[in-house]
């Protein structure tokens, strides 16, 4: 829908196009749109990463606690240039990447194992609760889910 007085979409200078370009610059590694001051926009980009780090830490408290003081930097390093898919999926994707790199801390491994025993997540669409009994492993941690109840069978290696 085009508001009165708005140029037609797709011309590159409609409000929609310019908002898209700004969001891309802030969260998707896009170039700075013409006319914006680089310093303040860079500060806003970093502020968005800090905000996201706090939001993801609320959804993945053990992952964040496991990384301790390194959490904000670890999250920002992973998230910079990568738009959010929501805090649950962001934390899940990061935890899997750390597991693959064998740098997932034990607390994060246990949290990931519990989440993966409880829900199926294909990395592309929102996680869905598992209906059948399941087990999941991360960093030596083993979690099982039976009839919707999830528990940690074995803690991660410390």
């Amino acid at each position: 829908m085009t508001a009165p007085g708005e140029p037609p979409p797709g011309t590159g200078d409609s409000l929609a196009d310019r908002q898209s370009a700004l969001v891309a610059a802030l969260v998707a590694g896009g170039p700075l749109p013409p006319g914006f001051a680089p310093g303040p926009v860079a500060a806003a980009r970093r502020a968005l990463l800090r905000k996201r780090a706090g939001d993801v830490a609320r959804h993945w408290p053990l992952l964040a606690a496991g990384l301790g003081a390194g959490w904000p930097a670890a999250f920002a390093g992973w998230a910079d240039g990568r738009p959010t898919n929501g805090s649950l999926r962001d934390g899940w994707d990061l935890a899997r990447e750390l597991r693959a790199a064998a740098t997932l801390p034990p607390l994060g491994a246990e949290e990931l194992a519990l989440r993966e025993a409880a829900a199926r997540y294909d990395g592309l669409t929102p996680p869905r609760p598992r209906r059948l009994p399941a087990a999941a492993r991360a960093g030596g941690a083993v979690a099982v889910q039976l009839a919707g109840r999830v528990r940690l069978l074995r803690p991660a290696q410390r």
Partner: peptide, 16 residues
């Protein structure tokens, strides 16, 4: 605005 072109900004962004 908080999203544009299908991409979420993650927080509140100013308008012109």
């Amino acid at each position: 605005f908080v999203r544009a072109g299908g991409v979420e900004a993650g927080h509140l962004l100013p308008l012109p």
